[in-house]
């Protein structure tokens, strides 16, 4: 079995978000880039499945410019067998899914993080499954191989649902799919350079969205502390200031 893990290159989660071009573009100067945390967990689970046997190869794929190769190289250092970079700017979800559809056909299992921590679009996985006409399960927090099928645990309102499903499958994974991402060992870091990182040119695709403007969320209001003796004041504030009562 071959697994494809989709990798998004995102700003480090502690990045201070700024915009340029009259708030129409993200200012990426001085930004540290990392593997999207959900994709990193997906990769960790793929590695666990490979170690348990039954998986021949793990490929990681990313749509992005050359600068995103460091992220793919890290995925190789952690243990992916090869990588594909589709050489274009990742503009929107539909465009990215169109590009990935070109390279994803040969894989029995595709793992996609539930969202990317940059735009939190929550869209590429579903779109890609539709384009490939693959079975798809979302909000997956557990996956095991079950002969030629998959046993998938997904979160539903108030609990979990265990699904048995045939391949080829695109699983949209979330927290819980693996415990925590792996730290690459130095041997892996050295081997990463020798593993194939293939560069594919993009196919024709269209952007279905256009960014008009970015806005930062309003700053958090300061927390008000009220003495325990003044319970009445809490009620008054909730009523008059927060207007939730």
């Amino acid at each position: 079995m071959k697994i494809l893990v989709l990798i998004s290159n995102v700003p480090d989660t502690t990045t201070k978000i700024r915009f340029t071009g009259n708030n129409t573009a993200f200012d990426d100067s001085g930004v540290q880039w990392i593997i999207n945390p959900w994709d990193e967990l997906a990769l960790t689970r793929a590695l666990e499945l490979k170690e348990a046997g039954g998986v021949d190869k793990i490929t990681v794929a990313n749509v992005g410019e050359k600068s995103t190769e460091a992220t793919l190289r890290k995925a190789l250092a952690v243990g992916a067998d090869d990588a594909i970079r589709i050489n274009t700017t990742a503009n929107d979800a539909f465009y990215v899914a169109t590009q990935l559809a070109e390279v994803a056909k040969d894989y029995e299992l595709i793992l996609a993080g539930i969202e990317a921590s940059d735009y939190n679009g929550n869209a590429v996985g579903g779109m890609l499954a539709e384009m490939l006409d693959y079975n798809s399960v979302s909000a997956v927090s557990g996956i095991d191989l079950d002969g030629s099928d998959f046993k998938v645990t997904r979160e539903v309102d108030g609990g979990y649902q265990v699904v048995s499903i045939g391949g080829p499958l695109l699983a949209i994974v979330q927290k819980g799919i693996a415990k925590e991402p792996r730290i690459p060992a130095m041997r892996g870091i050295m081997m990463a350079r020798k593993k194939p990182l293939n560069i594919n040119e993009p196919v024709e695709g269209i952007d279905k969205t256009q960014i008009i403007k970015f806005e930062l969320p309003p700053p958090k209001a300061a927390c008000k502390l009220i003495d325990e003796e003044n319970a009445k004041e809490v009620i008054t504030l909730l009523h008059e200031e927060a207007k939730v009562l």
């Binding site: 460091a70 190289r73 890290k74 690459p184 990463a192 350079r193």
Partner: peptide, 18 residues
Amino acid sequence: TEEQLMIKEAARDYAQRE
């Protein structure tokens, strides 16, 4: 180099996580 940065990150991750 990419490797040097990856080693730095690996050390940082281990220190800050473990």
